[in-house]
Design a protein around this nucleic acid. Structure first.
Lengths: 146, 146
DNA sequence: CTAATATCAGGTATACTGACATAC
DNA sequence: CGTATGTCAGTAGACCTGATATTA
């Protein structure tokens, strides 16, 4: 009944679906969606990215990211300032309010991660992280999106 | 530059974002979205599920799944038939056309998976699958979505 | 009455294509 | 000129809450 080849793609997708649902629940009270949260965490690491860079990092079109950033800007979580080096680029940065938003959900997100890996010891967690990083690298190498 | 605690949640999300983008590219020419494809693969394993069951398996509301099934039905990929045991349930099944759709993308999806795990040997692939399954199980156990 | 299911109405955020202006 | 960026317009699909009907 279940002799379908147990696809790794499917396993990743199932974990992701579950993570996504839980993350949505954690983020909703804070008024954040998962893509918005993702963009904020990326900005927390590297402030001053352009919308186009952010779009490439998130595998979406510049238009989609533009809309998302506009939403976050209206909410006061990020600011857009013209690139001091000139050009059309606008550099996006977390505001104090944005940092507060991230801090407000940090505990719940950490708890979610702890629950996800509850069944794995430290060595296994390290291995999982390693495997996932290699998968991500492999997918970046030979782009389908030619 | 990158001293943020390397979150496993983040690692899963990054792989998923990349998988999703590649999968969208593979599926788009066939006129399928990723959620639609997922539903079809679930039905390929277990035909005759109700929309509500499908929704639970995919972590979405019955309404959302209902819309998705309606779209697939209009496209001729699935059929809805009243439960022969009576009741309001409608059993959803893949049609020949639906099976053809799945078969049409199977090669490309398999190629995508091969590329994703290209950097892992068989033992590592097995471990990754094992870890992912345990993560999924752990997330199902203690529902946030009380 | 209750619980599960299906469905209608509506709303928002995601994401796309296409087009266009701006700046190097 | 050509390329990257930002943005406007329109569309489709994914997702939600709330309300309603049906049926065991």
């Amino acid at each position: 009944m279940d002799d379908t080849p147990p696809s790794l793609l499917y396993a990743v997708k199932q974990v992701e679906l579950s993570v996504r649902a839980h993350l949505d629940d954690v983020l909703r009270p804070a008024g954040l969606t998962t893509p918005q949260y993702t963009a904020l965490t990326v900005l927390a690491r590297r402030s001053g990215m352009s919308s186009a860079e952010l779009a490439r990092a998130s595998f979406v079109t510049p238009q989609t990211m533009g809309d998302l950033v506009t939403t976050l800007e209206r909410r006061g979580a990020v600011s857009r300032t013209p690139d001091p080096n000139g050009g059309r680029r606008k550099l996006i940065a977390l505001t104090t309010q944005g940092r507060r938003l991230l801090a407000g959900v940090a505990d719940d997100v950490a708890a979610l991660e702890r629950r996800m890996v509850a069944g794995l010891d430290e060595t296994e967690q390290g291995a999982l992280r390693h495997f996932l990083n290699r998968c991500r690298a492999a997918l970046s190498e030979a782009p389908v999106r030619a």
